[in-house]
């Protein structure tokens, strides 16, 4: 008897996807718990519960949790989710698995806007995510335009992005040289990290990230069609250009908001979507969900490693990510060159 491909296979696939999402959800919770517990002062889950629910907000552990661990954990979860989802979207829209936000100038575009904003309006935290979004949008649209106008190949597009990134980077350096007090922790910003992050800084970014994620989710089916190539997507009835711009706007908002909190954190948007794509079978909404959950857990764990590896000294999380992301990027390129991948 012939099996109907729409029924049994579909059900099994969906069960597997839900299970994967649940497993990633558990990873997020565990990483968050570890992030709150571990540090120079180790706290047990019981102490955390007491501090959160007993109301003794004056105790040392309660203050550590409220002012250090919780903001830091929220920041790493949010930043990781935002950058990974942003990377997944940019890769789908540009049909290029190498196009991560930090590679093609999206992060540095946002960084430039943050540096400019900090130099001109010190202390205007609420405006930072908006400025970062505009900078990131400028970066991603510039790369998209270069690709459209020149018909650049996938690899050329990445190289163009690297060039755009270098120009933005130079501009950031110039601002920080001329106005050194604009960013108090210059090297932390360049490398990317969560030291000294506050809820005041996180709140506006969280709003932007939430809104951008909703927009991205509503466009997930269209994003999936874009991955088939422009001609196929258009022949299936998709208005390619407006959808691309909407998706890139959402991706820029996500990356921009993340940069406004954590600085130029790199490679999350490259590594996590790659794994999420495998787990999701390329299904748009699941790709976004897995990227968000995977990115949140991944950055939180990396931050945990960064601040506990040489404890009591702390590394910015960007260093750990660079050690992981650099070789991964190289592997992706070599895999292409070797002809073993379609990427």
């Amino acid at each position: 008897m012939k099996r109907s491909p729409g029924s049994c296979t579909g059900m099994t696939n969906h069960k597997r996807l839900f299970r994967t999402a649940a497993a990633l959800g558990v990873c997020v919770l565990l990483s968050a718990l570890l992030s709150i517990c571990l540090g120079p002062v180790k706290l047990s889950p019981a102490q955390i519960l007491l501090a959160l629910f007993e109301g003794d907000r004056a105790s040392t552990s309660a203050r550590i949790i409220a002012h250090v661990r919780l903001p830091r954990t929220f920041a790493s979860l949010l930043t990781g989710a935002a950058l990974a989802v942003s990377g997944a979207m940019i890769q789908s829209v540009l049909e290029n698995p190498l196009a991560a936000p930090n590679v093609i100038g999206v992060n540095t575009g946002a960084g430039l806007a943050v540096a400019l904003c900090s130099a001109l309006m010190p202390g205007a935290f609420a405006f930072l995510p908006v400025a970062a979004f505009l900078g990131a949008l400028a970066g991603v649209l510039l790369v998209m335009l270069i690709g459209e106008r020149t018909g650049a190949s996938r690899l050329t597009l990445v190289l163009a992005g690297i060039a755009v990134s270098a120009v933005f980077s130079g501009a950031i350096d110039m601002i920080l040289t001329l106005v050194p007090e604009s960013l108090s922790a210059y090297s932390d910003f360049r490398i990317g990290g969560f030291a000294g992050v506050t809820m005041q800084k996180i709140r506006p970014a969280a709003v932007v990230i939430g809104a951008a994620f909703l927009l991205a989710s509503s466009l997930a089916p269209q994003m999936e069609l874009l991955a088939l190539g422009q001609d196929t997507a258009r022949s299936l009835g998709l208005r390619v250009k407006p959808v691309r711009i909407l998706l890139l706007t959402a991706a820029a908002a996500l990356a921009g908001a993340a940069v406004s909190v954590a600085g130029l954190v790199g490679f999350v948007g490259l590594i996590v979507p790659h794994a999420a794509r495998k787990l999701s079978n390329g299904e748009g909404l699941w790709l976004l969900v897995f990227s968000a959950l995977g990115g949140a857990a991944f950055v939180t764990v990396c931050d945990l490693i960064a601040r506990t590896l040489f404890s009591p000294y702390e590394l910015p999380v960007g260093i750990v990510l660079s050690f992981l992301g650099g070789p991964f990027f190289l592997w992706l390129i070599l895999r292409r060159k070797g002809g073993r991948g379609d990427a």
Binding site: A227, T232, S235, R277, D342
Partner: peptide
């Protein structure tokens, strides 16, 4: 009108999808 283009991407999805 449906169209099968000459050059096609190889997406990370199943045939069914």
């Amino acid at each position: 009108i449906s169209y099968l283009p000459q050059f096609r991407n190889v997406p990370d999805i199943t045939v069914q999808r």
